[in-house]
Amino acid sequence: MSSLVLAHTRHQMLEQIRVPIGLLASSLFPAIAMLAFAVPFVGDDPLASTVSTGSMTLVGTMSAALMGLSITVAQDREQPWDPYLRTLPAGPLPRFAGRIITTTAVMLVSMIPVLLIAALFTAATVTPPRLLLGVGAVIVSSLPFMLIGLVLGFLLPSKAAIGVSQLLFFPFAILGGLFMPLDIMPELVKTISQFVPSRGAGELVWWATTGVAPDVLPLVAMAVWTVVAGAVAAWAYRRDEGRRYS
């Protein structure tokens, strides 16, 4: 079974590397945002720079998880290659696992430009253990976005998946305080912010990299999002199978 996971991971990695536009999109956007906003405005402040760096890596991984995953899953479902793969002697698990592993790899790559910019052009500081902890926090907090990406991919045609995932991405990023600090936001936004998964993701990553104690409510909200999105993803997957099989 594990050799099948490997075979499917390899297959999807190769596709990802040979058509690297998804990889570029996930890496470039947060890097540019980092250069345009974080470097000139908070570049001299070690704590603010470190927080911004965490936020921008999250923006990159959110884009890979939410937009990348939803679009590739939706597109795959539309290809005649998909029914062929279903005739091969394997259940859905190997492909599924391959997809998650590949997306995680894309997320790791998308962090590199942001981290380089932070190291070279800002006062951001982090100890090696905190850096590792931060990378782990980014991966963990990408889980709800991967699951939401899967839900969209299973439910929508690819063109709709592109639109809807972007529609979710920007409000998530802004409300989560990833683009601008929450202190300068109106009270209403601060209140809503506590309930979006991106805020919990931010709290977790800021905590891991700077040691600043997190708000608890956003972390709970993120956990709830993860459980609900996981349940809906499983339902959407079965529904997709059902539509083809029944």
Binding site: E15, R18, W81
Partner: peptide, 13 residues
Amino acid sequence: GVTPQETGLPEAL
């Protein structure tokens, strides 16, 4: 063994 539709073969591989 089954034949896939050749139009669906993954182009990048």
